[in-house]
Design a protein around this nucleic acid. Structure first.
Length: 163
DNA sequence: GCCAACGTTGGC
DNA sequence: GCCAACGTTGGC
């Protein structure tokens, strides 16, 4: 395969992204201009690196509600941009302010996420009832990452459960 | 580079 | 509000 051909054939990837619905629910995202929101506030290097290095426009996203009465998958979205500097790191008024962030060398990034549709709430409890989903990162013990990769088989299983 | 202390996440 | 789990910080 030629270099040009191989670079043109990167496959679509899938992700689970946590959002606190009090801050940005799937309804909020769908109501935003172009159903698109800036995914701000990521303050974990591994999650940042996923955004910077691995996510591509068009990748599929399971939109997950966390830190709320009913945590679970609440919608489907997609990655809608590459990364750029997250301005909240420089804003002392923001809960995401990072006093160590250097405007000349931003350490935190965001990208755009476009909500596609709201689904029924596929709760964390229900996800745990499916042994075939046991490898989902969000179900794993001690998982705290706000962005995790979802393999294609799990993506399809989740979409099947949402039909 | 180790590792204890501390802070944060997030389900319950 | 509790607390397990994990990440980060900073002294050494």
């Amino acid at each position: 395969m030629t270099t040009a051909a191989s670079s043109a054939t990167h496959s679509r990837r899938y992700w689970l992204m946590k959002s606190e619905p009090e801050e940005c629910s799937i309804d909020d995202a769908l109501a935003a201009t172009h159903s698109t929101v800036q995914w701000t506030g990521v303050r974990n290097y591994q999650a940042r690196n996923f955004m910077r290095d691995d996510m591509r426009i068009g990748d599929g996203v399971l939109f997950y509600h966390s830190s709320c009465p009913e945590p679970g998958i609440a919608g489907i979205a997609e990655i809608a941009s590459g990364t750029r500097s997250d301005p909240t790191q420089f804003n002392p008024e923001s809960p995401y302010f990072d006093p160590k962030a250097d405007p000349d060398k931003p350490r935190w990034l965001l990208l755009d996420v476009k909500a596609l549709r709201k689904t029924r709430l596929l709760s964390l409890a229900e996800l745990r009832e499916h042994p075939e989903l046991a490898q989902l990162k969000v179900l794993q013990r001690g998982n705290r990452l706000s962005i995790t990769e979802v393999d294609e088989a799990d993506w399809k299983r989740v979409l099947d459960l949402l039909k």
